[in-house]
Nucleic acid binder design. Structure first.
Lengths: 159, 159
DNA sequence: CGCTTGCCTGGAGCGCACTCCAAGGCCATA
DNA sequence: TATGGCCTTGGAGTGCGCTCCAGGCAAGCG
């Protein structure tokens, strides 16, 4: 099964296999649950190419189709895309995300594996934040050096 | 001119065009200032291929050579590699780092451009840290979900 | 002397994550 | 009927950041 937004959208829905993101940056305008690919492009910032590619490689499970064969994304699909976007920001390889997607599709028996994967990702994220903070310190030192030096020779520069 | 470690290595050196990193993770063992490429590989974690490639694309200025034509890296070169490593962690494209390297080579007249580049990088880093912290929050929520759910069905799983 | 080790070069190749192409279906509006 | 817009597909192409290859040189050692 897939992650859902059931708990935030329909509080009375079954929340057996649920853990989703309450706040949304691009709020989904309508109460509808069927979005065309171009709507999803607008919400997600991904291209239609990428969305279809995600589906081909198994990063998204099969998307509903209209009677003419066009994709109709659900809110659940958008939630999943949110998660994928977050994981992408961590630098997680797409192959690992596909692995996680497979675990989700395999059902409840993979809870422990999923958790381990997420915890390992969490450690990576903490490491990366630390590295970025180190980098920030270096940047600040250099910026203040150039700031001082720049001010010292401002006249020369602006002449 | 290049960034130097003058202020930390020789406090009495000219510090006209200097702003470098005091602390080092892989302290350079000897007081020497001439390292072979394989030593630099050991210090930096980069491959020799990558080091030569960095030089080819202008990310490092010309490296000293021994009488037989082999590269001899200086402490200054290692400092520069440290910075490059940090900038790489921010996701800065190599082309932008090359641009910065060119500014450094062009001399003091580029102080302002360098500072602008660093400040823009700094903003990027802050953004990325924020994104990672958002992601961390999502991960924590999911982990605790799987933690609870996992504990609830531990017996089932371990049977 | 031969052999190994370490380094040199220009250029080709690779893996990842997209990104695009060509050809075509369906439907609405003019 | 035709024109445009939006969507479909499999497969090919792209850009980035390396990564490796073939062939060769110089030094050190038994």
């Amino acid at each position: 099964m897939m992650q859902t937004a059931a708990e935030t959208i329909a509080p009375n829905a079954t929340r057996t296999d649920t853990c989703s993101a309450p706040p949304r940056r691009h709020p989904r305008p309508e109460g509808q649950d069927h979005y065309t690919i171009s709507e999803v492009v607008a919400f997600s910032g991904l291209t239609a190419h990428t969305l279809r590619w995600y589906e081909r490689i198994g990063l998204m499970s099969h998307i509903d189709r209209s009677h003419t064969g066009q994709r109709r994304y659900s809110n659940r699909d958008l939630d999943w895309l949110d998660l994928v976007g977050k994981l992408r920001l961590t630098g997680m390889p797409v192959a690992d995300m596909v692995r996680y997607a497979e675990l989700v599709r395999e059902g409840e028996s993979t809870y422990l594996d999923r958790r381990e994967l997420l915890e390992s990702t969490r450690r990576d994220v903490l490491t990366r934040i630390g590295e970025l903070q180190d980098t920030l310190a270096v940047l600040d030192r250099k910026i203040s050096f150039y700031g001082d030096a720049g001010r010292a020779r401002e006249g020369e520069r602006t002449r």
